[in-house]
Amino acid sequence: MNVKIIVRGKAQGNLLVAKNPINFLGGIDKKTGMVHDTKHDLFGKSVAGKILVFPFGIGSSVGAYTIYSLKYNKCAPSAMICQKADLTTASGCAISNIPLVTMSKEDYDSLKDGQEITLDGITGNIS
């Protein structure tokens, strides 16, 4: 897979795949990592320790601090994979030191929920 590295770093874990874009502010509980937006397809699931896969982030820019809070509260995803990296997600990951990559739609669509992967966000390899 050919990935574009937005924030460098390595991670290993299970994928948590969201169909809908994520609004970090309001959509995810920053203390627990639980998705609490009832309208979201990940409602009731936790992003903690997962490699979070979602199309892109939406909503208020303050969502970047939610990403930082998730890291601070030890319930952040170990990495994120997006189709398009929006500014909120990119800067939130940069300051929280959470690896973030984007990839082509074809590769993105081949990612399966629950699949275990190793993400090397320095060389750009996924296995």
Partner: peptide, 9 residues
């Protein structure tokens, strides 16, 4: 301007 994030601004 872009729709900046808290950290980018």
């Amino acid at each position: 301007t872009n729709k900046e994030g808290a950290f980018s601004a």
